[in-house]
Amino acid sequence: MIEAYLLHLLILICIYAILSMSLTLLTGYTGMLNLGHAAFFAIGAYASVLLVMAGFPFWLGFLAAGGVAALFGVLLSIPSLRLRGDFLAIATLAFGEIIRSIMLNWTELTRGPLGIPGIPKPELFGIVFDSMLTYFVLTIVVVLATYVVLKYLLDGKFGIALKAIRENELIAESLGKDVKMLKMQAFAISALFAGFAGSLFAHYITFIDPSSFTLSETVLVLLMVVLGGLGSLVGSIAGAIILILLPEPLRFIGLPSSMVGQLRQIIYAGLLIVLIIKRPKGLFGEQWFGGIVSDSS
């Protein structure tokens, strides 16, 4: 029993670690505040579920989750080529709300607010990942793969170019960087991994509905990124671990579950305030996160 509970937390940590790593590429490195990240998570979840429930194999649903989300990432990058700072943040916020309202209203596809129950557990190479332990192995493998790929990209010239864009687009361009293309790639890669996380989430919980992909989900992931320190992959993982575990003790003090949800929000808000005052660069970060909301040019 306690083992199942711990594994459940570990699986959630893994899924959120993928999300927070994907978001730090965009927000931490490139300096583009994305308030619609949960939409990529949602698109991945629905894409994977709809394909698998239509009879396609899990691996295809999983890859499509990333691929479809990446396409939407490219779409969302278009306003980012013109908008900066706060205006971009508002555009991404609108994107998140549009995707959520499509999930709610395109009922033939998504069943709207009723959600999609009975999502099958993944099956790969003849193995069905239907126990907590096997599912944890699956998610940790994806976490490691995500880390390795993003680490390779971000430590190389791609990551340095993204940081240069965060610092000053015009100067990056004057040094030969194709800023529009790089921003598009940053959005696509960020969305790709968020889509993978969506697939893992959906096939784990086995039920999805639009309420799992709201703005507060984005804010939670953003808080993980900020807590760990913008522009740090290890920090993003640490942020996921801390923020998943932090509210857990609330379960054991005998409060009604409706109150637990609200208390959790209060804890997150309080943490954000403490962070801004005490440690604006996060645990592992190099950049103050005020930098992402003010226009750098």
Partner: peptide, 23 residues
């Protein structure tokens, strides 16, 4: 576009703020 001109071998030193401060 500017980035293609830069790639032709035209470089510049700016009057102000030409470096990436946090790098």
């Amino acid at each position: 576009p500017a980035y293609k001109i830069a790639r032709l071998g035209i470089g510049r030193i700016f009057q102000i703020g030409g470096i990436f401060n946090n790098m």
